[in-house]
Simulated scan of single mutants.
Amino acid sequence: MEHICPESIKVVADSLGISNLEDEVAQAMAPDVEYRLREIIQEGLKFMHHSKRSILTTEDINSGLRLRSVEPLYGFASAEPMQFSRPEGHRDVFFIADEEVSFDEVINAPLNKCPVETNCIPHWLAIDGVQPAIPENPVADPVRSAPKRRKAEIAVPGASSVKEPEVQPIVSHILSQELQLYFERITEILKGAQEELKDSALESLATDAGLHQLLPYFTKFVSDEVSAKPHSSKIPLRKRPS
């Protein structure tokens, strides 16, 4: 059963400027036109299914036309289904009713805002450590940004201009209880007279890799022992085991 009748072929031909089309030509073209329409609609349905939609849109039909190397239709893009109307006396002809628009409403309607163009403005955040005074950069707080002068650099009237040495603050170092007990035990053994325990202690100091936090404490211990007894107190040097 054909859905495209010869009368529809004549109407389309007349709209294209082809008048007086013979009935045999229209009847012969109707099956081919229907086949092409079905082919384009099937291609549009594929795009609809791939888009996870249940409504066939004009964009799907245009995608099917592009797939078949046919120029797409223009002026029919709409997200909503189009409403077709049927003229009186022509049951096989359908058209889209155009909405009547008054010129006064169009002229008096407010203009839409122009879209803002996307642009990118680069600027220097700092040049050689100095922040440029431009609107894009934040304003620096003069109180916080003022450099702190050291006590040795403050000029005192009547005093000499010799700068005092800068004293580094003492950093508190927290040792675990295990390291504290280890340090006390090793120092007691080194101060004692048992050679076997001294050999074990020195071997532990030479091979244990987790004693880096005790290095300043052992350095101070050796320095104090050598300063207190420079002639009598001697710690024997042991060959590091391979």
Rank of each mutant, 00 (worst) to 15 (best):
K10I: 11
V12R: 02
L16G: 13
L16S: 06
G17A: 01
I18E: 05
L21I: 04
L21N: 06
Q27R: 14
A30G: 09
L37G: 06
I40S: 07
L45E: 07
L45R: 13
K46A: 04
K52H: 04
R53G: 10
R53L: 06
L56P: 11
T57V: 03
T58L: 02
D60F: 04
I61E: 11
S63G: 11
G64L: 01
L67Y: 10
R68W: 08
G75A: 05
Q83L: 11
Q83E: 12
F84N: 10
F84E: 07
R86I: 14
R91L: 12
F94E: 00
I96W: 04
E105L: 10
N108V: 08
P110T: 05
L111M: 11
P115L: 13
I121W: 00
L125C: 10
L125Q: 13
L125G: 11
I134T: 00
S145G: 09
A146M: 03
A146N: 01
A146E: 05
K151I: 10
A155I: 15
A155W: 10
P157V: 13
G158D: 04
K163Q: 04
L175R: 10
E178H: 13
L179G: 02
F183K: 13
I186Y: 06
E188Y: 04
A193S: 07
T207W: 05
T207Y: 10
Q213C: 02
V222D: 01
S223V: 01
E225G: 07
V226R: 05
V226H: 06
K229M: 12
P230H: 08
S233I: 07
K239N: 12
